[in-house]
């Protein structure tokens, strides 16, 4: 009875946080639309959603990892890695370009798996290990790509980034599919339940028979996959890749997860919240661009907004 009550109230708080984030997004869109005609036009909002798709997809993997009380600081490097490696991994004799896409996603999933294995087997703190992975990838990228920009002509990637399916942009379709899969994984599979359990209490879940190691490796592998997919979408949208293309998505993905009401300490959260967080972030970035401020002010505005929103929605009551 008491447990049922608590679960109920926790659910309400969670719903409240998520609804709050959606409300802020709606408010921002209305205010910006009134102040700046054109901001709230259907075309611009769809463009914002397409941008949010990349953030949302990268943050999907980050959500799983953070719910399990981990963190993935390698997403930015994995995004760049994915975008830069695609041309090298696309075989010349494949007109569809799907082989290159599959190979790239396989590679980034492997990077994620290595992250997970390192964290589980070497018992390294995820913050340190994924930071180390990011550093290694950064060096490897410059060695491989030499710091030059690449252009993409892989038809599958161009379709992913620019194509339309039944009138819907492929980026948004991909996001919808991946988002549904991640939501289902979190709330309707054993793995999802395990991730919540690990995030709540690692030792207790171990004693309760949760396969902590495999579950964590899976979470980091999925995060690698998501970051890789995000990189391919970004590459398809921009039609070119360069070293540093993934940079904005490191803080972005973590902020989207936290603003969406997922506890940075793990154990509580939802992907629906992260979706709201991703749209919110992209909206803020677009607004800051509209304001036409100097680089310094843009940076300050971004930091201040994250901090302000964190006060509103990301507060951890039992934070250490």
């Amino acid at each position: 009875m008491a447990t049922a009550l608590r679960t109920h109230s926790v659910g309400r708080v969670l719903l409240h946080r998520v609804t709050l984030t959606y409300l802020i997004v709606a408010l921002l869109w209305v205010v910006a639309g009134v102040l700046k005609p054109g901001f709230a036009s259907a075309g611009h909002l769809r463009y914002l959603l397409e941008l949010a798709a990349v953030m949302g997809i990268v943050a999907a993997g980050q959500t799983l990892v953070i719910i399990a009380a981990g963190i993935d600081l390698s997403v930015a490097s994995v995004i760049t890695f994915s975008a830069m490696m695609l041309p090298l991994l696309s075989p010349a004799g494949d007109p569809s370009g799907l082989a290159g896409v599959a190979a790239t996603l396989l590679l980034t999933t492997a990077v994620g798996t290595l992250n997970g294995l390192g964290i589980v087997l070497l018992r390294v703190h995820p913050l340190i290990l994924t930071l180390a992975t990011a550093t290694i990838l950064q060096g490897a990228l410059i060695l491989i790509a030499g710091g030059s920009a690449i252009s993409v002509n892989n038809p599958a990637v161009v379709f992913l980034g620019n194509g339309k399916l039944l009138g819907w942009p492929m980026t948004i379709v991909t996001w919808l599919v991946l988002g549904s899969l991640v939501t289902a994984l979190l709330h309707a599979t054993v793995l999802g339940a395990w991730l919540f359990a690990i995030g709540t209490n690692d030792r207790a879940s171990r004693l309760a028979g949760v396969a902590v190691g495999p579950a964590l490796v899976a979470a980091y592998a999925i995060s690698g996959f998501c970051a890789g997919l995000g990189g391919l979408l970004l590459l398809g949208m921009n039609r070119q890749g360069y070293v540093g293309i993934g940079e904005p998505y490191l803080l972005g993905s973590i902020a989207a997860v936290v603003l969406g009401g997922t506890s940075i300490l793990g154990g509580r959260g939802s992907y629906l919240g992260t979706v709201a967080g991703a749209v919110l972030l992209v909206t803020i970035t677009a607004l800051i661009t509209v304001v036409n401020a100097s680089a310094g002010w843009r940076s300050i505005l971004f930091g201040a907004l994250i901090l302000g929103l964190l006060l509103l929605s990301g507060r951890d009551r039992e934070s250490r």
Binding site: I254, A255, I264, I306, L311, G314, S319
Partner: peptide, 9 residues
């Protein structure tokens, strides 16, 4: 508030 995200901001 969580130190990692506060200091990142």
């Amino acid at each position: 508030l969580p130190a990692i995200i506060v200091t990142l901001a």
